[in-house]
Design a binder for these strands. Structure first.
Lengths: 146, 146
DNA sequence: CTAGATGCAAATTCTTTGCGGTCAA
DNA sequence: TTGACCGCAAAGAATTTGCATCTAG
């Protein structure tokens, strides 16, 4: 479930550089295949498995962060600092919340569990502006022609 | 990503009853195939796909709750009330935290996002007692014979 | 009776792995 | 030069779906 730091000598390859650059550009928190789609425009011959492998390597390397959000797909983040997220319940999009994590929460919960607490995750769930707009359009069109 | 309530007439079948009963007995938050293994002792001919389908149906029905914890597998909970969880970073086990959710958190975050906030999830990450014990044993055996 | 549920097998989706050729350090 | 990496194809793991058959209401 968690891995020891890698011992091998890591290389900054072209594909890793591009993945990193594109991830930095994206404000969102893309999944592996979203990264693949973007990177492919610059490196048309890159394979999806390389994207998966490189994202994992960059995580071990501390250049990228794997988000364990509450949905099936893995999301990746260029910002490796601890921070909270909002996730859209409709489309799955994930965005940052501009606040410092509440470290006191972990302390507050320590007495409530026999786990050795090492961290916490806070995720807001909601509807993103785009999905909200779509929802309202659909509602309107239903009212007009039911 | 979320579904409207079902319109069809749902049936309390034998398999659904047993799934519900076994889920109630388990203190943990099992995955679909963990439910399958337990239920199979009482209904040897049940199929895994039925377990998946019934767990989903029972969720729609409000009898069971799907936990969207930060790991690949889906976990299910007999307790449908809002509550927080601790997850073991090693083995993935999920347990309840005996506190009332902090509803004020959502209010506090509303101004920080343009999402329409509908809920939040708080998850502690840690090492469960069993994994901690295993870890210490391993460390000890390494020291004895390196 | 009959809409809804089941069991089985096959299909999907996301992710990982094995391998021969390639490339950064 | 050479161990780490790449692309490709194939395998895996978790979950979903199609369909003929059963069954709760």
């Amino acid at each position: 479930m968690s891995d020891p730091p890698p011992k091998r000598r890591l290389r900054m390859t072209r594909q890793r550089r591009v993945i990193l650059e594109e991830l930095k550009k994206l404000k969102a928190h893309p999944t592996a295949d979203e990264v693949y789609e973007v990177v492919r425009e610059r490196l048309p011959r890159i394979s999806l498995s390389t994207v998966y492998r490189d994202l994992e390597t960059l995580c071990e390397w501390g250049k990228v962060r794997l988000l364990e959000v509450g949905c099936a797909k893995k999301h990746f983040d260029y910002d490796t600092r601890d921070h909270y997220h909002v996730r859209c319940a409709r489309c799955g999009r994930v965005e940052n919340l501009p606040v410092e994590p509440f470290t006191y929460l972990e302390q507050a919960f320590r007495d409530l569990t026999d786990y050795e607490v090492t961290g916490h995750k806070l995720e807001l769930i909601g509807i993103c502006p785009e999905c909200k707009r779509k929802e309202e359009e659909e509602k309107k069109s239903k009212e007009e022609a039911p």
